[in-house]
Design a protein around this nucleic acid. Structure first.
Lengths: 366, 366
DNA sequence: CCACCGCTTGACAACGTTGTCAGGCGGGCC
DNA sequence: GGCCCGCCTGACAACGTTGTCAAGCGGTGG
């Protein structure tokens, strides 16, 4: 027996162009022309075809179309976690640009796992996306070589690709932003500044550490490794890190946090510490907010990344713009897709210090 | 001339199974078997094929595969906005379940526009997704009828489909959650409770309003339309709404906010009002947090939806679980995809009141 | 020695669409 | 009247893969 299960019967699946053609009494190709709005079809015929399409509920099969034409009108986006506000902002911007170009977006979360990044990218390639936007988890992108040979376009966002990959890249000015934030604390009199950074496997963490060191050096302050804690920004690690810092013989008077998640985790820890010391007039006991006058356990705080309610909480931050990052990356990609050639670009978007109070308190006078 | 631009030349595009077959000295079908891990291939042959695959950088063309097999191993997800934490949480959960079933996810944001919801869904159908998870913006889903006929599976999440559509649906217990939250305020002595609800076009807003009324009725309190403000949760509207409520001759002593965004917007407004009244000992002046002892401009507050830092801010909320919503919807979908039939289910997930302080303050004694 | 079996391999059609090319038909011009 | 041209329509191959069926080959049992 052949593929079809019930010969001659009303087919179970969807109607095809052939079915529409039969229903409208025209040839397959004419239906194709109508569906694709190609010129040169008699209006009356076109109307008849459209009627048949509506009657049968026909929907073009884009797999077949893709197979025939070679383009899918879709792009792939690999980020770290769709549920992280930073990446979901980026994601939304990419989606908007793609929409304007009538493309769809496949999104996948790598969870900082290079193997998963690779799997996602290759799966997207198997689906023949026209292009890729990647926030890389890994540092080796040799696996992309055959894809590049095959003509796929890729743009890296937030972090650069591994060595030897000349693809377009959009980054933030991580070192510069970090320098600004730390210099700000120094300008307010702080000499011992703790740095809670992301895991050293991550490009942005390294860059921000560089900025931290540069700011210290510019002010003639020594670099003390004991003041730096690197690691994933989960609540427990951040908690342990802060406890360690505060237990130092010469503890920091200010903290610089390396990303949004770390900042939020830090706020929780500092609030808990403040509550424990119960120096606040019962405020925290009622759980009704943080506390006045720089009382984040007595520490000044500047964070990298803005986050929701940072304004209300009065947290000074170094803002990057995830939407702009996504938008820029997507625009670079579509420029490539529409034929632009030329060497890979590397853009750096600026950051902006936003003063809200937590970073403007002086160290306690001893 | 035929389709191919350069006859006989090394083709510009990707290698195909045919190329691999030629390189490995086997037949096309053998390559197919290796690529798909089908049994019955001599290990030595398989190894030779795999070597050729690596050498050529071959990647299966999933469009062709899909065309031949009729399944795409992908699902479509239509939500309101990927950048909204509620939906990105849901989104992440869906992605995780899909991953376990080796499916990919197309995601699109409808932005509460029924036409865009429809366009997204139909575009996903043209791409022949195996199934859909929809947070509907519109209330008429007649456009899905041909798709259902064609065998597509759909699950509605967070909001039910329009009348006459018997698809599986997962909701939260909106009315119940709202009732609990409002009853909580009543139990703490409030008699005049303002309700800042989402736009009346949205199912959840209507349901939560119902819960609000039920709670009032259960306590023998009158329903005062003047205390209810419905509309999109943007900062300006929320601001205006609160000003109106407070300008009433008999203003509310407590607020109930209808979703996460509204709650956040409300916090900003109340903080601004408190600052204006400057009854707080300089705390807000420094922008360092809210204020103690229920001083949200003197109002008690309970919000629907949990949000990041609500714990720190001490905001009492009625929590729903977006991950669970997404996970449940995805699991229902995959059950259908693996052949489960039977009437459409309608699930309601429970909500949970979390007391954090802002909802436990009594009204001011006059 | 022959029939049969299992293991491995290959030939071929089909999935639904689009690009190419050719043909029919009516009208205007020489 | 015949020729050419433009408009519209259709036949056909091809995209890259997978399902079906059949064939080759060496070994085993009757």
């Amino acid at each position: 027996m052949r593929d079809d299960p019930s010969v001659g019967e009303k087919r179970s699946g969807r109607p095809t162009m052939n079915d529409v053609a039969a229903a409208a009494g025209v040839a397959l190709k004419t239906v194709s022309r109508v569906v694709n709005n190609e010129p040169g079809v008699n209006p009356a015929t076109a109307e008849r075809v459209r009627a048949a399409i509506d009657r049968l509920g026909y929907r073009r099969n884009d797999s077949a179309r893709t197979l025939r034409r070679g383009r899918t009108a879709s792009i792939g986006l690999v980020i770290e976690d769709v549920a992280d506000p930073f990446y979901s902002g980026l994601s939304r911007a990419v989606e908007d640009v793609a929409l304007r170009h009538e493309h769809f977006v496949f999104t996948g979360s790598s969870g900082e796992d290079p193997a998963r990044e690779r799997d996602l990218v290759l799966a997207f390639c198997a689906r023949r996306v026209d292009g890729l936007i990647i926030v890389p988890a890994g540092t080796d992108h040799g696996y992309l070589a055959p894809e590049f040979d095959a003509g796929i376009k890729a743009v890296f966002a937030d972090r650069p690709p591994g060595a030897g990959c000349g693809a377009d890249t959009v980054l933030c000015d991580n070192a510069g932003g970090s320098r600004t934030g730390v210099a700000h604390l120094i300008a307010h009199g702080h000499r011992r500044i703790g740095f809670l950074a992301d895991s050293p496997a991550i490009f942005t963490a390294i860059e921000r550490l560089r900025g931290y060191r540069e700011a210290l050096a510019a002010a003639g302050l020594p670099y003390d490794e004991g003041l730096v804690r690197m690691g994933p920004p989960d609540q427990e690690r951040v908690h342990a890190g802060i406890e360690r810092l505060l237990a130092l013989p010469d503890p920091p008077t200010a903290l610089f946090t390396g990303n949004g998640r770390t900042t939020v985790a830090t706020l929780r820890v500092l609030a808990a510490i403040s509550a424990r010391c119960s120096i606040d007039h019962g405020l925290v006991r009622h759980g009704l907010g943080l506390h006045g006058h720089g009382r984040l356990a007595g520490l000044a705080l500047v964070g990298f990344d803005d986050f929701e309610l940072a304004d209300l909480l009065g947290i000074t931050i170094v803002a990057q713009d995830p939407s702009r990052l996504g938008r820029t990356a997507a625009e670079m990609l579509f420029r490539r897709l529409s034929g632009h050639t030329g060497p890979g670009l590397r853009l750096e978007l600026p950051t902006r210090l936003i003063e809200r109070g937590s970073g403007e308190t002086p160290p306690p006078t001893r």
